[in-house]
Design a protein around this nucleic acid. Sequence first.
DNA 1: TTTTGTGAACTAGTTCACAGCT
DNA 2: AGCTGTGAACTAGTTCACAAAA
Lengths: 241, 241
Amino acid sequence: MPPSSSHAHAPDEPSRDPASPAADAAPAPAPASTPAVGEISAQTLNRLSVYLRCLRELQAQDVRRISSQALAQRFHLSATQIRKDLARFGEFGIRGVGYEVEPLRQQLENLLGLNRSHAAVLVGAGNLGSALACFQGLQGEDAFRIVGVFDDDPAKIGQSLGALRVRNTAELADAVRETGASIGILTVPAEAAQTIAEVLVDAGVRALINFAPVTLRLPDGAQAKNVDLMIFFEELAFFLR
Amino acid sequence: MPPSSSHAHAPDEPSRDPASPAADAAPAPAPASTPAVGEISAQTLNRLSVYLRCLRELQAQDVRRISSQALAQRFHLSATQIRKDLARFGEFGIRGVGYEVEPLRQQLENLLGLNRSHAAVLVGAGNLGSALACFQGLQGEDAFRIVGVFDDDPAKIGQSLGALRVRNTAELADAVRETGASIGILTVPAEAAQTIAEVLVDAGVRALINFAPVTLRLPDGAQAKNVDLMIFFEELAFFLR
DNA sequence: TTTTGTGAACTAGTTCACAGCT
DNA sequence: AGCTGTGAACTAGTTCACAAAA
């Protein structure tokens, strides 16, 4: 990886590109009315992830029920917003009581699509790529499994990363088809990102996390989440003026 | 955005708490009217970072001038928004012509506080910490310098990461004071994050990037940016339902 | 009671459309 | 003519405040 790509993430993308692969509504298990995919903002989605994390923490502490109020205080959130966000997908709470932690956690996992396992391939075995390949957050979850790590650099090919061995990028498309991977993680240099993204999407990947500081142009039906780490640093620099 | 960040995430924090360590207005070098720090939203700030990156790319291609229209098309942004964002800080454009790349780039760098160098310490030399310590995006910029890497683990202490050697976390506070570091990068386990954050802030660090999925509670005057990589994955999982 | 779920009010952010320079 | 800068219109997102349910 050349100038090891400058990856960094993207807090939230500059507004643009309203195109989104809207999926259908109502996933089988949810009894409540579920809005079409495109109708939930990234912001809301991120909050749901946060709530889920909070619920898991509560569950680890054997908390069975919690009110929006208590949840908000415990994790510095807004009680009203928690209620609004949750109410969007059904009536999960019990009036006068609060929410039951376990069922709510499950609802959120279903809603976020974490109830099934997603295979991911990672391209670019530089420092960041290696870190992600070994990332405990991913290993711990059942929802995501990295099934292949790829790089161009002959020096890296063959090296092992955790349980995986770095393979030649030439094998990428075949590997995606064989494993049915639906997620691609791009930790390649900026120049290579677009090309690799196209290979991935052609082979069947539908969701990308792109750590390279470029905007990917993707066909409909494929989604990319840009993550530019430099932007976080620049945001802090601003507060230090 | 939360005061000093709330839980774990990154994209953009759940709304709330308008409190912010507002600094004063008008930094000396900017001739244009500069709003107080707290008045610029994280969203706008991120867009400014994006514009800056685009300008640098244009400059590398010897483009001298560009209109908001052309800029927008080239990088898939919104022309109106570019103009609105920039106009907020002064009249940088030439009507009928567009913007001069070089001076605009400088203005943005000043505005974002990238004209001076910020020393950063990194705590937690795991996979992610190591990746960031060697991160070219940071090495390339003059604006940020990682001046120290710290860890608790005796097995890691003494190892070298790029030009640096991992030091004992016990030396952290002294190192911050000696180097005058203003930024702290937290790549420690969730349990350790709050404690380390306090040590850093006590020693003089005013801005943190926290990769641990916990909400840091910080005194006024210190700012944390939470970055939770899992949230990016969860966002994609949703689109794959 | 207590606490959810939700319309209504409010606030922030984006896009439109055009006046005003060059 | 061409393009910026900007009020005005619009859209999205948040908070308030209260009716309905347990």
